[in-house]
Amino acid sequence: MVLPYDSAPKFQDYARPEMLVTTGWLAEHLDDPGLVVAESDEDVLLYETGHIPGAVKLDWHTELNDPVTRDYVDGAGFARLMSEKGIARDTTLVLYGDRNNWWAAYALWVCTLFGHPDLRLLDGGRAKWIAEGRPLSTEVPQRPRTDYPVTERDDSEFRAFKEQVQAHLGQPLIDVRSPGEYTGELLHMPDYPQEGALRGGHIPGAKSVPWARAAAEDATFRSRKELEAIYQDEAGLRPDDDVVVYCRIGERSSHTWFVLHHLLGYPRVRNYDGSWTEWGNAVRVPIRRGDSP
């Protein structure tokens, strides 16, 4: 059961307008059967302080990751998680979160690996919903359990591994970390603790486009025209390029993956989730320091 798409004029310029909904659309459809809203935040307590009424919580750290191996949950684990949250395979799943939808885009990317058919992001995320004075609730909804089918994760289309990135050298790469992380001056995000990368710098050939440039001040995505100016005019990507994006653990780059693939329509964009915490620790991989790609 697919809910109607949001026909907001701004979205119609994007390659896949159906991937976004406005806060107004969501408020109108909040009680529709067939819709589940899920909040995914950087701060794991934010949902508990108040969330969009009826929204479930999707925790990137405890729920989407395998607890032992550095990988995402498998098909059975994902099916269990979705069933517990009351999400069916034909549910329209709208994701939103804090910090320009940073973690919501990550959750959406992981759900994409399992091929969930109808995924959408709330344009502007949590910040815009709150800025507009829309209601929040601390009530945790008890959605009836579903029987989500076990679907194996498909890593081939949208995920890149280290060896694939090594084979990709010379082709377009986008580094979405902060400028200091890119040049190698910092081993971690400004104001964040060190996360254990032994070497600083970037993957040779990668262009630096910090992820949050794709977001406007109100946390919504920039217009298609503005995005093209950033990624095409400045970073030099061409619409038929095969692009790999990366950051530190693959979360910030999920946001850029969403922009390039769904909003600008690049057919082949892969997120390298090993990212700098793998590359910056790997033996004998090439690294470049400084400003230039």
């Binding site: 701060d43 794991v44 307590l45 934010l46 508990e48 302080t49 804090d98």
Partner: peptide, 9 residues
């Protein structure tokens, strides 16, 4: 800030 409940906690 209240928007950072984990750190506040």
């Amino acid at each position: 800030p209240r928007e950072a409940p984990t750190t506040r906690g």
